[in-house]
Design a binder for these strands. Structure first.
Lengths: 195, 195, 195, 195
DNA sequence: TATGAATGAGATTTCATTCAT
DNA sequence: AATGAATGAAATCTCATTCAT
């Protein structure tokens, strides 16, 4: 692995564990096994390193989310696939995922950071949800509802579930499964409820 | 107002706007119009000031939430009352509310902070939700569901909605109203759906 | 006991345990059970409090040393009595005695302090020793030696023994007894050695 | 000279003159002609700087003491050589030597400091004295006496003499010479007394 | 590309001291 | 005599960043 990659991975893990302010450039250099100057050589400054570290994680997540929702039968199934894939991704990347939490526009970590670039990527996720909702309403698998606000609420559910699991000290078995059901119940035309 | 109170209010506003790391003790002292030493005289250190600032806000919120849910007809209505009162509170205290976000156990701001004391207060909120769910299931206003996980998910919805409104750069009209409907649809026995 | 006395005793104990820099005026006030302002009311400032605390201890020691050496048969016995009384005093006042160590001109604690007044009292001790030596040389109980330098060396022995016992982490049984013998051997005409 | 060395020398001189509390890291940086951050870069914190400054001085002293006592004819001569070399060292290093006084376990400067590491080095000195005494008793140059306690007392003499010279405001010509004689008289089999 | 010495602004915290009551 | 709120200078320490090599 190149030293540049080592730095990026170190940054992703450290920002995940210690937050933006709690992570120093020296810590990143040490964990990556390089001189501190090299971190600046490749990433210019701390904010940029943080944003690149986050971007890179989100990009890989977005690719997976697309692939997991590409061939779903209807809007409701696509939505379920999206939520499940998202939550699975957080578990599979539990050492680095909190960095995504922290660099998202929903973060409370360092409000001074310029999250425009990353904000756009998160918008992409919201747009995917909106699209699924729209499709579901059309194909009859999702009830009639205001798509824009609901898309944010679906995403808000994911945010909340992920934060509860990753940040809060509460241990709740089956939380992620229940998160999916919670959303489905709210937006999908439940089979049992169909006359 | 006493200087101690001035310090606390300054802290609540500054932590809300700039986060934990972004707020300095000097900023607090200046905004409160006191010497920096006085901040330490009353609050010992930055972490304690942050926790006291957060605690005090949560306490006042909890009192309101209790009063707004005390005489609801059934579990579903109590739950709706709780969620609405919570969201209303955030709007009425928009200058200071983000401090609650930041000192909550769901925060990603400074993972090193000892949030035990405050975590207990948040647990109280979760417990209120759980109790409403239980009551609703018994009185037939809420569908049968796993109360513990669902309580967390209801709270996760609130967290997500509040974060979207307070932290994210997205402007979504009617988001809070929709948040209430989203939750109600997921857990309540909707009149339209009865038989 | 008057509050003024309580403050003085608190100061003597705290300076003994934590040194000049390690003791704060607030600590003194707390241990004495008074408001911090009162410490300043009675003692003006920290340096003065330290000096008064030390002076008072030395004064009481000097009185004892005089009384214990007043009726010795010869110079050698007077010297022995002095050294023994000094060492005994340190043991009987072990909670406060280190304050004498710290405010003495032989201290390395805070070289900026003005020790003139206290230096004079220590000179009194050196003078006592010198007098005993002189008497002993005259009455034949002490060998011929340069009294001035030797007086300092006798005192140096006491200083060293006391520091070893009170400050160093070494536990040496019988050190004080041996200190007396060490001095006696060096300056007295030992009975066994008399032809 | 490297900047690291400059810092160490500045520290040794300043701690010697102003004590631990009286020396600030800024003073050290200024005297060394470097930025304050560099002092922390190399020595982490004030306590460590103090201990390293002291250690380094003691190490060089121990080497000299060994070399000056290596080929003495008997225990008494070795002891005399040790004491003389010790006192000479303090004079030759009078600008820095008080730092050794202050970081020794016999110091009253800042009782909170962790002197374990340095205490071990001082124990080495005590052990040297004990060895000389033992040798002297065996070879007949030193009288029969309890070696352990006496070793401490010999060292106590050195401590006392050095403190009187370096810290006290008393000017006593010939004090160090007399210190040697004082010790010799107390422990050695004086030629004149033989037979 | 790679190192790590070097900088210096700025943060937290401490604490002697003052002063109104 | 007694309190403790209030001040503010100064100390320790951190850390992003630069730069010579």
């Amino acid at each position: 692995m190149s030293k540049k990659d080592k730095i990026l991975i170190a940054a992703q893990e450290l920002f995940a564990r210690y937050g933006y302010a709690g992570t120093t450039m020296k810590m990143v250099a040490e964990q990556a096994g390089v001189a501190s100057g090299l971190v600046f050589h490749y990433f210019d400054n701390k904010e940029n390193l943080f944003m690149v570290a986050g971007s890179e994680l989100i990009d890989s997540m977005i690719i997976i989310l697309h692939s997991k929702t590409i061939d779903c039968d209807n809007g409701c199934e696509a939505l379920r696939g999206f939520v499940k894939a998202y939550l699975d991704f957080t578990i599979e990347n539990k050492k680095t995922f909190p960095t995504i939490i922290r660099c998202s526009p929903f973060s409370d970590d360092n409000p001074d950071l310029d999250r425009k670039r990353i904000g756009a990527k998160f918008k992409e996720l919201i747009d995917m949800i909106e699209e699924f909702l729209q499709r579901g309403i059309k194909d009859g698998s999702i009830i009639s509802l205001p798509v824009s606000q609901t898309a944010y609420m679906v995403y808000a559910n994911i945010i909340g579930a992920v934060r509860t699991r990753f940040l809060a000290p509460y241990e709740i078995p089956g939380l992620f499964d229940e998160a999916i059901e919670f959303i489905m119940r709210s937006v999908c035309v439940a089979p049992a409820r169909k006359i």
